[in-house]
């Protein structure tokens, strides 16, 4: 392990890795490696302390009970909050996204405090589950191409004044609040409902995290052939499905 390598922390794969979430870590690692950026990946199980010196933290999706267990253990540990206080980058998906917020409804039907890292609050959608391909436009401040992903969740998430929606959807439910918003972000903390995994379908999100971590404005190009082909296919599929 080199002291200068970028530290990529994958939070609680034993609880929050139900929807191919490892994919986001693999894409970040791969795209760093292609730029000769040394990366140390640290997988932290829920009985281990969260290191506070990471550069990028990934936290994924999971089932309802593991989500509650993860929230309890993360609150008790406090490491992720300290890391964010140090300016760390956090990218969260689905159950992980809800955990970063102020509150969500747990598997017992009760409000569960989140980590308060992101100003969002989630409730359980009383209707049917949000399942399917989604597509939309990412907040223009982030300078990213359209978002494509696959959502599979029962949550409705309200974005508070301390955060901004990550994207505005053209297709799909996203935050489920009926206003077309999807996910949320503030400074270096991001949340989304998009699986896929989201970095496999939106590799420039992985690049954005790398640029933030390295404090650079650009990265050398890599071969985007298969990512581009997949993106085009999935965007077309989402468009057709809702036409």
């Amino acid at each position: 392990m080199s002291d200068t390598s970028l530290r990529l922390v994958w939070v609680y794969p034993d609880l929050l890795s139900t929807y191919g979430d490892q994919g986001n870590a693999l894409v970040v690692e791969r795209r760093a490696q292609q730029r000769h950026i040394p990366v140390t990946r640290i997988d932290v199980r829920s009985d281990q302390p969260i290191p506070t010196s990471g550069d990028i933290y990934l936290i994924g999706g999971g089932e309802d009970r593991p989500q509650r267990l993860a929230a309890e253990r993360l609150r008790r540990d406090g490491g992720l909050n300290r890391a964010v206080g140090n300016g760390a980058i956090v990218f969260s998906v689905c159950a992980g996204y809800q955990i970063l917020g102020t509150e969500f409804i747990n598997d017992l039907g009760r409000p569960e405090p989140g980590l308060g890292i992101l100003d969002v609050r989630s409730v359980r959608n009383e209707g049917s589950r949000h399942v399917g391909d989604i597509m939309g436009d990412i907040d223009e401040r982030l300078g990213l191409p359209p978002l494509t992903g696959f959502e599979n969740h029962q949550g409705n998430t309200v974005v508070g004044p301390g955060a901004r929606p990550f994207a505005r959807l053209r297709f799909g439910s996203g935050n489920g609040t009926g206003d077309g918003t999807e996910g949320a972000w503030c400074d270096t903390v991001f949340g989304t409902y998009a699986h896929g995994p989201v970095m496999a379908r939106n590799p420039l999100i992985a690049d954005m995290l790398l640029k933030l971590a390295l404090d650079v404005h650009a990265l050398p190009p890599v071969d985007e052939q298969w990512y581009e082909a997949l993106r085009a296919e999935r965007i077309a599929a989402a468009t057709q499905a809702s036409a």
């Binding site: 191919g20 490892q22 994919g23 399942v131 696959f150 599979n152 699986h195 496999a200």
Partner: peptide, 9 residues
């Protein structure tokens, strides 16, 4: 199953 995320597992 219509979700292909499992490929990453």
């Amino acid at each position: 199953g219509t979700d292909t995320s499992w490929l990453w597992d």
